[in-house]
Every structure is written in structure tokens, then in C-alpha cells.
Amino acid sequence: MTSDTPAGRRFRVFNRRRSAPSRARRRVGAAVRMLAALALAGGVYTAFAPGAFAQDDKQLSTAAQEGQALFNNSCITCHGPQAQGVEGRGPSLVGVGSAAVEFQVGTGRMPMTRQEAQAEQKRPVFDETQTKQLGQYIQELGGGPQIPAGSLTQDIKQNPEALANGGELFRLNCAQCHGNVGAGGALSSGKFAPSLHDPSPQQIYGAMLTGPQNMPVFGDNELTPEQKTEIITYITQQIQDDKDPGGLFNLGGYGPATEGLAIFVVGITILVFASLWIAGKS
């Protein structure tokens, strides 16, 4: 499923050595998992379906029911029936709230294609409505943090300090992993903090609120909703939208590493060709 995204392609190219020897095993594993999932889904259905349906109908809203249907199709394998979690496969989703669902599903990280160091961002499987429905289901199942409705950025015309405040908070709380330029960064053993150039305000808010993967949680006590919107304002206005001055290209924002590469690939190369021409026999 990831194969069409650039990230997926890159992943395959650079992880060939790691994944190639276990291809057969992986296939077998996938088949076993598939069978297990089918058995589980079937079993769950026969065991719970009649009663559960009658019970849930009373509690769940229409959107949540739609969400439940989607959940039972795509998520139940790892997160288990009633989202209780499956040992060694996926955590319980009770209490994670719709914020977590909207972040994980909205960015395509869930459903995962396989167990790996960290869920990769890819093209979302579900559209926006379906994501909302899934979120609604999880929310009604066990409560938890929710992404507030309405605008999640601040109008810097009315509140000009928001950008500077957001910048300060960003450098203190976010930059250590995502980088000052928002280009992302490596964590231990194959994990990483993703680039901040793509996510929407909702997704950033959801990530801060729920702490997906290895990201620490920034609840409303650590960063007030206002501070969160200031950070989002900084990310969207300064990092995503602003054409930074000082050149046509910013070399990816990776700092001195790419600058050093550029001085050899561009500077030294141009000048070596120039000297070849100067000293060449005419």
C-alpha cells in the first residue's frame, strides 16, 4: 500500500538489506496474520454481533455507527474488538479521543501496513468524513482529548505577538526533534520526527494533544490551547507559507550538511571546470 508514495519507495530502496532475507517469512507471517484476523473478526462477529448491535444502537450516534463499521473492517485486527487493544499488535484506543484518530488516520499513519519502528505517513485510506466518523466512534467509546472546532491559527494582523510567541514556544518545545526549519530529524533506532511542511493545523493540534508514536504529550496544561494555536500560527505562517529570504533554494533546511555538499557539488565543480578550460590547450 505504501509502494506508490515516495516515502514507501525510499523505504524499500534503503531497507532492502534488512527486509530482503525475510521476505518469505514475511509472506507467511502476513498470511498467518490475515487468517488470524479473519478468524478473529468472524469469531467476534458471531460472539458479539446480535447482542452488541442491539446494545450499541442505543449509545452510538449515527456517525459513530458508521465509524464502528469502518473500525470493524480495518482496525479491529490490531486494536481488537471494542478497541480494547491486542497484546503485541496494537494498543487500546479507549480514552485516546478523537484527536488521536484524526491525527493517525488523517495523516495516513493508520491503518499501518506492517509493524515497524514507526508508522509512516502515507496517503490516507479514509476520506475526511470517514475519519471523522471513526473519531466519533472512538470518542463515544471511551472519551479523551478532542481537537477543538474552529480556526486553530491566530490572525497575526489582530494579534501580532502571536507569531513571535509561537516562535519562542516552537524553539523550546518542538525544534529539538523537528528542527528549527521544520525539516524533521532522526530519533533513536530508526524512529524519526517528521517534517512539518505538510501537516494541516488540525493534524498539528492533534499531534500535540495526543503525543502520537514517541512524541511527548503536550496537554492543555503544558501548552494552553492559545499557546498551541500560536505554535501552529508560527508553523503555518513562517515555516510552511513564508518564502524565506536569502536565495532561491534553501537546500532543504538541513543546515551545514547540505551547505557543505553544495560548496563541493556547485562551487568547486564550477571552478575546476573553469581551471580545466583556462589551462587547456586551445
Binding site: 525544534a175 529539538q176 528542527g179 528549527n180 530529524g185 532522526a186 543546515g255 550538511a257 557543505g260 560548496i263
Partner: peptide
């Protein structure tokens, strides 16, 4: 107290 990922010196 603040730092960025990918903190490197010049080449």
C-alpha cells in the same frame, strides 16, 4: 535550554 535537531558545524 533550546536546541534544534540536526545541529551541525560547518563542513
Amino acid at each position: 535550554s533550546a536546541v534544534s535537531s540536526a545541529s551541525q558545524p560547518d563542513w
